[in-house]
Amino acid sequence: MGMATGVSICSNALLMLGAQTINSLDDPLDRAKICSNLYPTVRDDLLRSHPWNCTIKRVLLAPDADAPAFGYSSKFELPSDFLRVLEVTDNGVFIDYLLEGRSILADSSSLQLRYVYRNEVENTWDAGLVMLLTLAMAAAIAYPITQSASVQANMEQKLSMAKKVARSIDGQEEPAQTLGDERLYGARLGGFS
């Protein structure tokens, strides 16, 4: 697969619909304007929908100078590229927190945040995610481009099936994670003492 870009993803989505490609999202063509309007929203929605390996970041957050009015002792501003919380810990320990607006509220002096970020560099993505966004764009632009509800329904069905496969493959790349105390589990099975 070549270098993926927003333009190449949109062009491939247009090809799937039998339309001509575009050279830029700024082209004065109607199909480029449709792609330009929908692409950021479709991309962000797809990235937020699953913790894709190529869209995960870790940061250490320091509290804001202004504490919340009540309920928690500290407020932490979310990164500008934030899309979804995966984990909030303090020194590796999961803590109680509340996501409120563009902030995390917690009773902590610092936070370790693992999150899904807005990765706008498509050529760093897995090939499956590039194809999935291509299908998502094809589904989103199907009716405006073709004026056919059946083409749109067909693209949405293809997208639904492709999401299942892509999520499964992406999830297989991570090691299995344990839940809870393994010693307790082992003792129940008679393995640990």
Rank of each mutant, 00 (worst) to 15 (best):
L129N: 05
A153W: 00
V93H: 10
N37C: 05
S110W: 09
A106Q: 06
M3K: 10
T124R: 06
V59W: 00
L83H: 00
A138L: 01
L47S: 03
A32D: 00
S109M: 10
G190M: 09
A138E: 02
I9F: 01
M16F: 07
L132E: 01
I9C: 05
V42Q: 03
P175C: 05
L86D: 09
A65K: 00
G92Y: 09
G2V: 11
I34N: 01
S150Y: 03
L184F: 06
E182P: 02
S150E: 11
E174S: 13
N91K: 10
L159C: 02
P68D: 04
S49T: 03
D96H: 11
D90R: 11
M161W: 08
L98M: 15
F192D: 04
G71S: 08
A140I: 15
R102N: 15
T41Q: 11
M137S: 07
H50K: 00
D45R: 14
Y115R: 14
Q20E: 12
Q20A: 07
L129E: 11
I104D: 00
A67Q: 07
I56L: 06
S193H: 09
S148D: 15
Y39K: 12
G18C: 06
L98Y: 10
D96L: 03
D181G: 05
L111Q: 02
D30Q: 09
Y185M: 11
T178A: 07
D44P: 00
M155D: 07
N37R: 14
V130D: 06
F82I: 06
P63R: 06
D90Q: 11
D64K: 13
H50Y: 12
A62E: 11
D96Q: 10
A127C: 06
E77W: 02
G2A: 13
Y39H: 07
G171Q: 14
K164E: 15
K163L: 08
V116E: 03
V121H: 03
L133P: 01
Q157G: 09
L25E: 11
N119I: 09
E120K: 14
E77F: 08
L86E: 12
L111A: 02
A176V: 11
G180M: 04
N53H: 04
L25R: 10
E173I: 14
Y117T: 13
Y72T: 10
Q157S: 14
D26H: 05
S80K: 05
P79E: 08
T124G: 02
Q172L: 13
L86F: 09
G101Y: 07
L184D: 11
T21M: 10
D107F: 01
E77S: 13
A140H: 07
Q20S: 07
Y72F: 15
Y143P: 06
T21P: 01
T134A: 07
I169P: 02
R58H: 13
A136I: 09
G171A: 13
E77T: 15
Q177T: 15
E156D: 04
E122P: 02
G180C: 08
V88W: 06
W52K: 11
T178W: 11
T178C: 01
E174G: 08
G191W: 13
G171T: 13
G6K: 08
V7K: 08
G71R: 05
A166S: 15
P175R: 13
Y39A: 04
S80F: 12
K33Q: 12
S160N: 14
S73C: 04
D30S: 10
L98I: 02
H50F: 14
F94L: 09
R84I: 02
D26M: 04
N123R: 01
K57N: 08
K57P: 02
